[in-house]
């Protein structure tokens, strides 16, 4: 389809969003990422029944952890779509990017030392 979506997004593939751990999301922000979002299958369509539902619970948990810490919870989001929805994928990517642009850069970035 050769759809355009923002180039600043780094995609990490997982077998199921149920595999995404709280620490994966938290660590991303800790290491300076401006935002992280999890894209899972549509609710009710998980091949493993509840993987995407568990992922959403974890995302919500991480959002509250970030708020506790003093960061914006909205730096972490969860989206759902089916594998055939390329345009929706691109739309969500744009929406997340706009959200992060509005929030501004991760203030932890200055603490990150790159090798």
């Amino acid at each position: 389809m050769r759809l355009e979506y923002p180039k600043n997004i780094k995609i990490i593939r997982v077998p199921c969003t149920g595999k995404v751990d709280v620490m994966h999301l938290l660590r991303s922000i800790q290491k300076g990422a401006d935002g992280v979002y999890v894209v899972g299958c549509l609710e009710g369509n998980c091949h493993y029944n509840e993987g995407n539902l568990r992922a959403r619970e974890r995302v919500n948990h991480v959002r509250s952890l970030l708020e506790e810490v003093g960061l914006e919870g909205d730096r972490v989001r969860m989206y759902n779509l089916s594998s055939g929805e390329g345009p929706t994928f691109a739309a969500y990517a744009r929406e997340m990017t706009e959200n992060i642009l509005a929030l501004g850069p991760n203030p932890l970035k200055k603490w990150v030392t790159r090798p």
Partner: peptide
């Protein structure tokens, strides 16, 4: 969390 909060 502690690491991030104290850096902030």
């Amino acid at each position: 969390e502690l690491d991030m909060a104290r850096k902030l």
